[in-house]
Amino acid sequence: MKRQHDSLIVRTMSRMLIPLAQLFACYVLFFGQYGPGGGFVAGVIWTTSLILTFLVFGLKSPQGRLVERMLHGDGAGLIIFVGVGGLCLIGGGEFLNYQHLEIPGLEAAERRYVGIVLTQIGVAADVAVTGISIVVSLAFHDTQREYHV
């Protein structure tokens, strides 16, 4: 777990399956208006794909470092969510009333679509960073820490 996994099969399969899981997470995120899914589910699927990344490739590998760097985004999702609500306030409506997002050239339905997708991206980012941060601090707490959560 701290180093790269020994088995070639595991590494090759992970290289193929991790992008597939992330693609599915994006599908669930952007299709949440029309089918089952949404921000929370997408964030959780994204988290598991990232956790698989550093379970297989280790925290020291380039992929692991990339995942580790995502921990700096803690709270960014929340800012996106609240920010969209604030933009609705600026547009003259209530907090989180997406109809009042001031985006020129968009119908009411499209404004609501943009608002809901943006807030769901916020939820997904928040959930994903939280999941990774818990696993990283649980799994790598006994080694010398060079990362900052």
Partner: peptide, 30 residues
Amino acid sequence: TLTPNVVTSVLMDYRGFDTLIETVVIFTAG
């Protein structure tokens, strides 16, 4: 809400505050 999926419209629109505070809870837990 002009959103086809009822679950999404309830979660993100009718009860947007609820979802916002849930996100805050997850953030705090992390």
